[in-house]
Amino acid sequence: MKKIALFTLLLCFGSIYSQKKKKTEAVVPNVVIAKNGNASAEMAKNNFYLFITNGAKKDTLLLKKYVSKVTPLECKITSFTTKGTPLQLVSWVEKSVSETKLKKEETTITESQIWNPATKTLVVGNTQTATKIKETVFLDKLKNASETQERTRNGGYVFTFLPEGDFFLKDKSSETRYSYNATSLKYEVVKPNASAPVKPTKKKRK
Rank of each mutant, 00 (worst) to 15 (best):
S98F: 05
N193T: 10
K120V: 08
T8S: 13
N193D: 15
W115N: 00
T121G: 09
V190K: 10
T201S: 12
L185N: 12
A34R: 06
A196F: 07
N116M: 02
L122D: 01
L11H: 01
N36L: 07
V158Q: 10
P197G: 11
E188Y: 07
T100F: 04
N36V: 05
T201H: 09
L185W: 09
K23D: 10
V198D: 04
L162H: 12
P163R: 04
Y157A: 07
T71A: 08
P197R: 01
T119L: 03
F13A: 13
N54Y: 00
E94D: 14
L102S: 15
N126D: 08
P72C: 06
K103G: 05
K3R: 12
L9P: 03
N30T: 14
G37N: 07
K143V: 11
F161V: 09
L9R: 02
V28K: 08
V31L: 14
L139N: 13
G156M: 08
K203W: 11
G84I: 06
Y157W: 07
Y17N: 12
Q128T: 01
P86M: 04
N126L: 03
Y187S: 04
W115F: 03
K134H: 09
E74C: 12
R177S: 02
N154G: 05
T60V: 12
N181F: 04
A182M: 14
I16H: 06
Y178W: 14
W115P: 00
V97P: 01
T119Q: 03
T82R: 03
T8C: 12
R205Q: 07
I109D: 10
S195L: 11
K69M: 14
K58D: 02
K120I: 13
G37S: 10
K22C: 11
Y49P: 01
N126W: 00
K45Y: 11
T100P: 07
V190F: 04
N193C: 09
Q149I: 11
T8E: 07
P117F: 00
C75K: 06
G155P: 14
T100M: 06
L169E: 00
C75P: 04
A44C: 13
I16Q: 10
T183I: 11
E74D: 15
N38W: 01
